[in-house]
Write a protein that binds this DNA or RNA. Sequence first.
DNA 1: TGCCCGCCTTGGACCCGGTCCAAGGCGGGC
DNA 2: GCCCGCCTTGGACCGGGTCCAAGGCGGGCA
Lengths: 138, 138
Amino acid sequence: MSDLLNRLRGRGWRMTAQRRVVAEVLDGDHMHLTADEVHARAAARLPEISRATVYNTLGELVSLGEVLEVSTDRRAKRYDPNAHRPHQHLVCARCGAIRDVHPAGNPLADLPDAERFGFTISNVEVTYRGICPDCAAA
Amino acid sequence: MSDLLNRLRGRGWRMTAQRRVVAEVLDGDHMHLTADEVHARAAARLPEISRATVYNTLGELVSLGEVLEVSTDRRAKRYDPNAHRPHQHLVCARCGAIRDVHPAGNPLADLPDAERFGFTISNVEVTYRGICPDCAAA
DNA sequence: TGCCCGCCTTGGACCCGGTCCAAGGCGGGC
DNA sequence: GCCCGCCTTGGACCGGGTCCAAGGCGGGCA
């Protein structure tokens, strides 16, 4: 039993085959899957699982803080199971590959008070865009 | 005649009533409008302008570098006429208000070589999220 | 000034990711 | 082992955006 499933159970999550499969798909080493990709992988193990359930479950995992929603493009949202170590994203502009990165310093510190306009800032997202080595070679 | 229209003409843009109106809407002090909002404002001056033309024109302005596409949420793209001074965005998580901000330093410099994975990085987008003073007061 | 080429505009169909809903299923506390 | 109420299902629906074929019109040229 994985840590993730234990944590969820500990939070009073009613365990069902569908939820287990979705959580296990994310808990694997697959990074930044779309909802449809999660659905496809889940369906490989539990063929009758519905799209709606995958969406519901992903939404719950996000609001429980176990998974992050990432929108690096305007296409499908992606789900990032690496929710427990703060990080940013590096995206290939050509093939869409995504890597987690860990910039030095705190980007919040770079925003002067005069540029905060009285906002209470709680979060900073940084997306680095460029060309990955594979696309550069091709 | 605005600078923007002059620049566009100088680049060989065929001038039409529709394009002029879209460019003028963006060139006003209205910031970060959605395509539909641009369409609404344009239609106030040129009632028969179509949605497709607004989308086409916005896309051209973006690829000419005169306007930036901003995706701070997963709803509609927004169009930012402030394309000539580099900046980032501060977004209210509650009401969606967007402000341009100018962080100190260069966020690219914060990404160590070891975290670049061989990518050729060309661009960094930073989105600060928080609560604006109006929403905090309410 | 007037013609004509070819770029521009139009409305409507279509696409895609995502959300919503009512009905039935089933987890798990007792 | 029962039963309550949460969970799942499939299909309709939504909203932003894109595509397309047909007709309009800008503007270079004579």
